[in-house]
Deep mutational scan, measured.
Amino acid sequence: MAAGGDHGSPDSYRSPLASRYASPEMCFVFSDRYKFRTWRQLWLWLAEAEQTLGLPITDEQIQEMKSNLENIDFKMAAEEEKRLRHDVMAHVHTFGHCCPKAAGIIHLGATSCYVGDNTDLIILRNALDLLLPKLARVISRLADFAKERASLPTLGFTHFQPAQLTTVGKRCCLWIQDLCMDLQNLKRVRDDLRFRGVKGTTGTQASFLQLFEGDDHKVEQLDKMVTEKAGFKRAFIITGQTYTRKVDIEVLSVLASLGASVHKICTDIRLLANLKEMEEPFEKQQIGSSAMPYKRNPMRSERCCSLARHLMTLVMDPLQTASVQWFERTLDDSANRRICLAEAFLTADTILNTLQNISEGLVVYPKVIERRIRQELPFMATENIIMAMVKAGGSRQDCHEKIRVLSQQAASVVKQEGGDNDLIERIQVDAYFSPIHSQLDHLLDPSSFTGRASQQVQRFLEEEVYPLLKPYESVMKVKAELCL
């Protein structure tokens, strides 16, 4: 049975990233139509530049190519590739079939990587351009969430054990800070992308030097003109047959890092959902379990974690691919890159769409948070109580021993009897502590235990987050809708 299948058929496997999760716009960027249309555009740009620099290419040939950029006979191309065992030459023939007058000058002087690699770089750039505003929107939604809850005390956790208090907004800023680093890295790697350009079979530009009869300047002009037509500021000066596969490492490393950030955020949300302090959106008709109707599973956060793990592992592909590119190139890269580049971007696209949807509907339960604080705060307040007693004339050592005994009794009630923490009640009825009984409410005010959390939130948002989001103001209103 021949390899390949009808990918629109229910009898043929289709990647869930495309069929179930990723956005239509990201799927289109990695589609065959987008790819092969870009090949034709690159052939047109090459012909236009070659004509401008004096090669015998007519206006009629150029116009014929322009008129057929979208006229792609995919069936013919597939048949040609089956016959020739070469995808680029299959599309040269297919393009030439609908451009008979231009057929002889299509791909003039070029090698397969002229269309293959340059198209990949265009796709990487455009895919990054799709991700950047999506990530900015996630940051914006979380920034709104953090600002609104900047002063809401909550129990902090280290080692997932109760620690000092923080605020809900401050905790959210930990998430935002990681995503801001990801946004900066995505922008950097996007701006650092260079075009492969017009380089020939081993990167020496020998074929173009021959076409222009040894004119170095025209060869350099050709490279520059096509690079500018493709919208790049610069091209690699040095290439082998391909652009260095280190570029793929750079791009997928940034995406993998984004995956790590999203995994951490969504894990926190899942843990908070278990504590009943916070939940992701839950639709009115949504079913959490087929057997347990009360369940409210954090399905979206779980999906993000599941896909983020996949995204983090994909960076190993370009690392290994770059390491086995012998001399000017081997074909070890080809099949692998067809999979890992598309999957990385479709996965990143999915987790950003999902995280935006989550961040637009996060639900906080202040009463649950308050109750958990009441359970733990008495123990945390013991040092403040000791200091207040010393100020009232008591002995630190005597007070410490009193607190120690009462704390152990209260802990026994919590752990052995399943009761509430009654340390404060014990202190309130103990005559030894009568000098500070009137101060206990103040000493137990949760806001006095959150330090500068709310001020940190305000400063972080104003100095770091809002300036970073400013270039994306025009796209901030787009909502994230999930079908599944």
Rank of each mutant, 00 (worst) to 15 (best):
W43G: 00
G116T: 15
T158D: 00
R404N: 10
F74E: 14
A78F: 09
R270D: 00
D248L: 04
T242W: 00
D215Y: 10
D32G: 13
M89V: 05
Q210A: 08
A411R: 07
C305M: 05
V254G: 11
R372M: 05
G96I: 09
M292A: 01
K470E: 14
E328M: 01
I105A: 12
Q205K: 02
Y365M: 10
D144L: 15
A381R: 04
Q210W: 01
F460E: 05
C113Y: 00
P298I: 03
W45A: 12
T167C: 01
Q221D: 14
K391D: 05
H442G: 13
A18V: 13
V189G: 13
E463K: 11
V189S: 12
E383S: 02
R296T: 12
D422K: 09
E370G: 09
D333G: 01
K246V: 03
K187C: 10
F95H: 08
A260V: 05
R33W: 06
W175M: 04
I369H: 04
V414I: 15
F327R: 03
L331A: 04
A410E: 04
Q164S: 11
S151E: 10
F208C: 09
Y432T: 09
I62Y: 06
V475A: 15
V429L: 15
S359C: 10
C27S: 10
L183G: 05
A230L: 03
C172H: 06
Q210E: 15
K229E: 05
Y114D: 06
D182K: 00
I265A: 13
D332N: 00
T201R: 00
V457N: 04
I105P: 04
E302H: 01
K35P: 02
F236W: 14
H442V: 15
F236P: 01
G214Y: 12
G109F: 01
I436D: 04
A235F: 14
S454F: 14
R270E: 01
A411H: 02
A348G: 13
I72G: 05
Q286E: 03
W175A: 05
C180Q: 08
D422I: 09
A110G: 15
K170Q: 05
L131N: 09
G418S: 04
G419E: 14
E50Y: 04
F433P: 03
K134G: 14
T354F: 05
S261G: 13
N68T: 09
I351D: 03
V457R: 04
Q161A: 05
A102T: 10
K101S: 09
P10A: 15
H107K: 00
S112D: 01
T350W: 04
G240Q: 06
S15G: 15
Q408T: 13
R190S: 11
F36G: 14
R337I: 03
T38I: 14
A102W: 00
I385M: 08
C305H: 06
L271I: 14
Y432V: 09
L165M: 06
T242R: 00
R452I: 12
L307D: 01
L307R: 02
L131W: 00
T239V: 08
G419H: 12
G259M: 05
M380S: 02
P446D: 02
Q285I: 14
K101L: 15
A381K: 06
Q51C: 07
K199G: 03
V414M: 11
D182Q: 02
D59K: 12
R374Y: 06
P318D: 02
Y472D: 11
K276I: 05
P133I: 14
E279Q: 05
T58S: 14
A103P: 07
H217T: 14
R372F: 03
V226D: 00
P153F: 05
I123R: 05
E250T: 12
K170P: 02
E277I: 03
G5P: 07
T321P: 03
E50V: 07
A22P: 11
H159L: 02
I139F: 03
R337G: 02
F212Y: 07
E213H: 15
F449I: 03
A308S: 13
D11P: 15
L468R: 08
F232M: 11
L423D: 04
Q416W: 13
C340K: 03
S359A: 08
R374K: 13
F208P: 00
F160W: 05
Q455P: 10
V198A: 13
P366M: 03
A322K: 05
V315F: 13
T154W: 08
I351L: 15
L155F: 06
N71W: 11
L132S: 14
P153T: 06
P318H: 00
W43Q: 07
F345H: 08
M76C: 15
K134S: 12
Y466W: 15
V413W: 13
R337E: 00
I358R: 00
F145K: 05
I72Y: 12
Q375M: 10
L341R: 07
L132E: 12
E64G: 10
H91G: 11
C304G: 14
P24D: 14
L341D: 12
G451E: 04
C99Y: 05
V251M: 08
L271P: 01
V368Q: 05
Y34W: 11
S151M: 11
P378N: 01
L252K: 04
A127D: 00
E328Y: 02
K284Q: 13
M292N: 02
L406G: 06
M380Y: 01
T94N: 10
E250N: 10
D11K: 09
R245M: 02
C304E: 06
D422G: 08
A291K: 00
